[in-house]
Design a protein around this nucleic acid. Structure first.
Lengths: 151, 151
DNA sequence: ACAGTTGTTTTGATTCATTCAAAACAACTG
DNA sequence: CAGTTGTTTTGAATGAATCAAAACAACTGT
């Protein structure tokens, strides 16, 4: 059935990253492939629905292994717990809502290379440029407009 | 003496931000004007040298008041506690060492505006773009080179 | 100069996300 | 299928930051 093939795809990804294939790892990878940006606790909740005896620490362990091997990316926006996403390898950026902390992907920035070129490197060997756009998401704009109809 | 005029300058900055002038606030502002990027605990250590009975919570309270009023900027690089800096109003960016977490300022990015223009806003009202450059600082490069002379 | 009001600082406790460590256990190798 | 290696569980601990109430200090107007 479809679930099995999906599990095999995920297992293959784990194997090619030289990771042992375990049920918690498949579950975590599956959850992250479905949803966008989840914190450890949300991943834990989702995982325990299919694998009830998984511990939170196992989730932390799995996430850390997946991040280290490059299968999952960890982002840490100010004011939120760490978030994990399965979209990887394209160094995309993020839009974060100042109000509700919702996160959206930003495919890339116009021009691209300017953002990777600081004017003064202070002797640093720069490896990546991480851009976070802070703003107000559409739902929060709507909610604010409702509270202040004419100001 | 010079110290008094410096204190008056800091007091003036507090007044023009509509903040009451208190000894802990002047001390915190003074510490941040001298050094670069400090976490709450380092600010606390520096402040208690001139004002021994200041509490850590007071430092947190002062920092939060200064940040809210725009006199101090708070940055939260992944993997470090929050850092505070007195340089404010110019939306400069940061270079962070992947190894030792040292932070340096980046005056601005070549081109500047491209980095403020995401390709898809997802309905967000974007207010600021924050750029963090991750790399290895010169001291850590030197330390690594010493451990692996020819590889 | 001083009393009142407002806002700040202290004191003490608590929260949350995350990490550590040891023992029990399961996946891959040959 | 047994052995090795690495993972997961269990239980506890950490660090950074926040909350709340009481004591206190800065500014206002008189």
């Amino acid at each position: 059935m479809a679930e099995d093939t999906q599990q095999e795809v995920l297992a293959g990804r784990l194997r090619s990253a030289q990771l042992k294939v375990t049920a918690p790892r498949i579950a975590v990878l599956g959850v992250l492939s479905g949803h966008g940006h989840l914190d450890a606790d949300s991943v834990f909740s989702a995982v325990t629905q299919q694998l009830p005896k998984t511990s939170l620490q196992a989730v932390y362990g799995v996430l850390s292994a997946l991040v280290t091997s490059g299968l999952v990316r960890k982002i840490e926006p100010a004011g939120s717990p760490a978030l994990y996403e399965a979209r990887v390898g394209d160094n995309h950026h993020h839009l974060v809502c100042l109000n509700c902390k919702r996160v959206e992907d930003v495919d890339c920035v116009i021009g691209e290379s300017p953002c990777l070129t600081p004017s003064n490197l202070h002797g640093f060997a720069v490896q990546v440029a991480e851009i976070t756009f802070w703003g107000v998401c559409s739902s929060c704009q709507a909610a604010t407009a409702e509270l202040e109809p004419t100001s």
